[in-house]
Design a protein around this nucleic acid. Structure first.
Length: 952
RNA sequence: GCCGAAGUGGCGGAAUUGGUAGACGCGCUGGAUUCAAAAUCCAGUGGUAGCAAUACCGUGUGGGUUCGAUUCCCACCUUCGGUACCA
């Protein structure tokens, strides 16, 4: 009987579905193990062979853990809100829900075909109101929380209000907006409700702010920093400009230090940790305040109200952040970012024209221009001067676009002798460069070597090194109240608003005072309204501005027609929607109890499952999803809703499977296509050919190609040896590059088990590697051999040889699975089957454990063979075989021999090796012998002619 | 520029803590089977020299440590990923 993989796979997939074989139990007594894949965005293109790589790996591990006696949670779902469905809707008018549902259906078919052991009863979809009800719920909890820096955790906003009522905010340590005024309890009570709300907004973990954002005109939306790549949008590559807008923000900066510290507690890949560390960008230094000297013609400082007595001081102040406070005496000028608030206030009338021109010119330049053009030095003098905190020297204040408004305070104290950018700026504008380093020549470039710094010409810092000088200068600055030690982070609060339709609506309406009000938990979910157009409105409002029924009636607690808005009982709802990462920041916890309608998940469920034990997904989410999720989890932990401050103990990044694109070469001017070998140095344009039209020998199917690209119907093909040979190049697998290999066809030709084995066999899980279907015959013939081995299983006693082969395999496969080296274990299987076939082994005592070993990798055939061996039911929970070393050691023996009549040592060597051969081997290695003289090694392992191992 | 990963046959890739480099698979060569092909099975396959046994050379380059280095150290080259005027 032949190996009929189609019949077998179909049979067992139906069996698993019918018996709910992989359904996880929330109350089992077994130890738990949670294996999670990053859930996919269901795109219209379906899966290609690269997508399932991580799913296969996690499935192998999940099945392995089941064999090891764990209660395994292995769920799957869809991150189904997103831009492509919306763009498709804009083009076709088709509702995104419809396209999304169709795509999900297709994904599910493809996933089922591969035989994954997902517990589909726990499926979630982020665009399902039953799911996003809880995304909205978390948002409300964030709104109702503040960050108590004293206890270093999030707390309910009500605790903050009671502090305000009893003692004002003077002693409150919180992570809040920089412009938060200081007030007393009495002042607090005197504020109107709207004013109180305004102040609380400065403390909430999610808040509204006028923020400079990445605005993408082509997409009509705001993008987060990680969605902008090289100044253009990650999706579509459209230009992005800076724009000020009122946006919902997430106060992730409150968690910067904890996000950094807790990286040490999780087993994640070092490169990924490095990029998070980099992204958070902690730097230690000091903040220093410079007074701006009064100057004729400079506008008088504004009095910003009576809440903050400190702001009524006589002059403007510039606060800077520096990592080199020790070089304070080398500061010879200051530079402000062109966008800095003070620029307009301190510029002298004489300088006003040039400054304004510079500011306007900079604003016009896109972020991309500014980045690509880092060499040009530009800037202008404001005419104003600041006062050095210690020397009281007059320091000119410049503006320059090398200073970024978004980092630190948007202002720097420029120390040209110690910083190359300051140095270049000073040289360019002829600003003095005082030297404050002992024994260092700064005539050519700045001296930035902290480790070898000795300070000079710096009053009380003279002779000190970097650490000492830093400590001293911070002490002195604190004494005069003009600075303090400070830790600065590059991490910015995350913009949480998107001007899109296909996302979670905010559970927010705006009251008569324009203040945001949250819906209550019982009002959720607030479902997306229907709109006629998915584009932004003509007035630039988000797509939800097109909805006619999008107002909140506070009496009936229902969404009502916009016409009913009266600002007493009926109010407008928020028009923005949440970004893509909202839905993916808690899904791993929701899987624990996905159908709970009363809570995001039950306490029992999360107490049982705790956290993800193994998370597998791509490294492209390093500074997006994986950072935001850690933030949400920490928040949930602070507020007592999650038992662990980190959601995933171990994470593996699977590598990308790249495609091997094929190219034809068109003559630059003529409708001529050259075979690859004939191109040489002719001027040609490479054009993608569909890889399906090329055979394994890189030969193009010319007729097929003419159908594929009708514009070459009449083209002349210049052949070599009667063939048209294409060029090859490794590229990302993508529809537009015509290099996509589809798993359906492979399942059809070779079966899912072959595909699973082959994807693992291709190479190390974490490496990126090119797809090449040719090699799949190797693993496929392994399955056929395996099948043959089971044709007449008997009850015979296994031979020593059989047992050796088996236990060698158990040992290696178990080690490989634990190390995620799935590629080498597939090789081990092949060797095992070849050996057993040669040994003519038919013993059930060997075949039974072998079936269990293979089952995580090739589950369908394993189930079928399991049945052939006479077992009923699924192999899924059969105990993983135990490795026993006794079956491996039979072929070596230890010999005590003497060498040179002086030393005694022991050899471990094959039985068939004679003594003269051993001695000849040792003699041949004089240098080794010399090394051995005077020593007493425990054991020497020798093969003819060479020493393999010396122990002791 | 900075941070990280990686360079091994024609190809994908193996190689426990330093211990027979190239496992396993693809491809290729020869053979068996076949009217023929597919499929299957057997043998060979890093390079150079040799009929052969065998010898020498071989893990990006140049050094170093070691009885012994793909593995450890230093310098450099190349490729890929991340990040970028971060004060």
């Amino acid at each position: 009987m032949n190996y009929n993989f189609r019949k077998i796979e179909d049979k067992w997939q139906k069996y698993w579905a019918k018996n709910e074989t992989f359904k996880a139990d929330n109350t089992a007594q077994k130890p738990k193990y949670y294996v999670l894949d990053m859930f996919p965005y269901p795109s219209g293109a379906g899966l290609h062979v690269g997508h399932p790589l991580g799913y296969i790996a996690s499935d192998i591990y999940a099945r392995y853990k089941r064999h090891k006696g764990f209660n395994v949670l292995h769920p799957m779902g869809y991150d189904s809100f997103g831009l492509p469905a919306e763009q498709y809707a804009i083009q076709t008018g088709q509702h995104p829900a419809i396209t999304t549902a169709a795509n999900i259906k297709r994904y599910r078919e493809q996933l089922d075909q591969l035989g994954f052991s997902f517990d589909w009863s726990r499926e979630v979809q982020t665009s399902d109101p039953h799911y996003y009800k809880w995304t909205q719920w978390v948002f409300i909890q964030l709104f109702n929380s503040w960050y108590d820096a004293a206890s270093d955790k999030a707390a309910p906003i009500s605790t903050l209000v009671s502090i305000f009522e009893t003692e004002g905010n003077q002693s409150v340590e919180a992570t809040c907006d920089e412009d938060t005024p200081v007030f007393t309890a009495a002042a607090w009570k005197g504020f109107s409700p709207a004013e109180q709300q305004q102040i609380l907004l400065k403390y909430r973990l999610t808040y509204l702010a006028e923020a400079e954002v990445n605005w993408c005109p082509a997409l009509g939306t705001v993008l987060a920093n990680d969605e902008v790549v090289n100044g253009v949008s990650e999706r579509g590559g459209h230009p992005v400009i800076r724009k000020k807008m009122t946006q919902w923000m997430m106060r992730i900066t409150a968690y910067a230090q904890r996000l950094l510290d807790d990286l040490d507690t999780i087993d994640w890949p070092q490169p990924l940790k490095d990029s998070q560390t980099n992204w958070i960008g902690r730097s230690e230094g000091a903040s220093v305040t410079f007074k701006v000297l009064p100057n004729a013609g400079v506008e008088a400082p504004e009095i910003t109200g009576d809440v903050d007595p400190s702001s009524t001081s006589a002059s403007h102040k510039i606060e800077v952040f520096t990592t080199r406070p020790d070089t304070l005496f080398g500061a010879s000028f200051m530079t402000l970012a062109p966008e800095h608030d003070l620029v307009a206030k301190i510029t002298t009338p004489e300088q006003k024209a040039v400054v304004d021109a510079y500011v306007t010119a900079t604003a016009k330049r896109s972020e991309r221009d500014r980045l690509s053009d880092v060499k040009t030095i530009s800037g202008v003098f404001t005419g104003a001067y600041a006062e050095h905190p210690f020397t009281k020297a007059r320091i000119p204040i410049w503006i320059g676009d090398y200073v970024l408004a978004s980092y630190g305070t948007g202002a720097v104290m420029a120390v040209p002798c110690g910083d190359q950018r300051d140095y270049d700026f000073a040289k360019h504008f002829d600003i003095p460069i005082p030297n404050i380093f002992e024994g260092v020549d700064i005539s050519e470039e700045a001296f930035a070597d902290k480790a070898n710094t000795v300070i000079a010409n710096s009053d009380f810092l003279n002779g000190l090194d970097y650490p000492k000088a830093t400590r001293k200068v911070i002490d002195e600055l604190e004494k005069i109240g003009q600075g303090k030690g400070k830790v600065n982070y590059r991490l910015r609060d995350a913009v949480f608003s998107r001007q899109r339709y296909w996302g979670e609506p905010f559970p927010v309406y705006y009251d008569a005072a324009g203040m945001p009000q949250m819906l209550e938990e019982r009002d959720l979910p607030l479902e997306l309204p229907e709109v006629e157009k998915y584009l932004p409105t003509e007035t630039g409002e988000p797509p939800l501005g097109n909805a006619t029924t999008w107002a909140w009636d506070t009496k009936t607690r229902k969404v009502v027609d916009n016409a009913l808005i009266d600002s007493t009982a009926v109010f407008p709802l928020e028009l923005n929607t949440m970004p893509g990462w909202a839905g993916s920041s808690q899904y791993f916890n929701r899987y624990m109890d996905p159908h709970n309608a009363e809570a995001i998940y039950s306490k029992e469920a999360i107490e049982y499952w705790q956290d993800v034990d193994l998370y597998i997904g791509g490294s492209e989410h390093a500074t997006g999803h994986l950072l935001y999720s850690r933030f949400w989890q920490k928040f949930m932990y602070d507020r007592g809703w999650a038992p662990k401050p980190e959601f995933a103990k171990k994470l593996i990044n699977q590598g990308m499977i790249t495609g091997t694109s094929a190219f034809v070469y068109k003559d630059l001017n003529k409708n001529l296509l050259y075979s690859k070998g004939l191109v040489q140095d002719k001027k040609v344009i490479p054009i993608h050919a569909d890889v399906a039209l090329v055979n394994a020998a890189d030969e193009l199917d010319i007729d097929g190609f003419k159908n594929f690209r009708p514009e070459f119907q009449d083209a002349e093909f210049i052949l070599e040896e009667g063939k048209y040979i294409v060029g090859r190049e490794i590229e990302k697998m993508s529809k537009s590059k015509y290099n996509v290999v589809n798993p359906d066809q492979i399942c059809e030709d070779y079966g899912a088990d072959s595909l699973r084995l082959y994807e693992m066999f291709l190479g190390p899980l974490e490496q990126s590697k090119p797809w090449n279907t040719a090699g799949i015959t190797g693993v496929h013939s392994f399955l056929k051999k395996l099948w043959k081995l089971y044709q007449s299983p008997d009850d015979s006693t296994p031979t020593q040889e059989n047992l050796k082969t088996l236990h060698k395999t158990i040992k290696k496969v178990e080690e490989d699975i634990e190390n995620f080296s799935f590629n080498t274990s597939v090789s081990t299987f092949m060797i095992c089957v070849n050996e057993l076939t040669a040994q003519k082994c038919a013993s059930k005592a060997v075949l039974e454990p072998l079936t269990i070993l293979v089952s995580p990798y090739a589950p369908h055939i394993a189930e079928e063979l399991w049945e052939k061996l006479g077992y009923t039911g699924s192999i899924t929970y059969a105990p993983f075989p135990q490795f026993e070393e006794q079956y491996l050691v039979e072929s070596t023996k230890e010999y005590p021999i003497s060498f040179n009549g002086k030393m005694r040592f022991t050899l471990e060597l094959p039985l068939d090796m004679d003594r003269p051969a051993i001695e000849a081997a040792v003699m041949a290695h004089e240098r080794t012998a010399k090394y051995l003289e005077g020593r007493t090694p425990k054991k020497i392992i020798v093969v003819p002619g060479k020493i393999v191992n010396i122990v002791g």
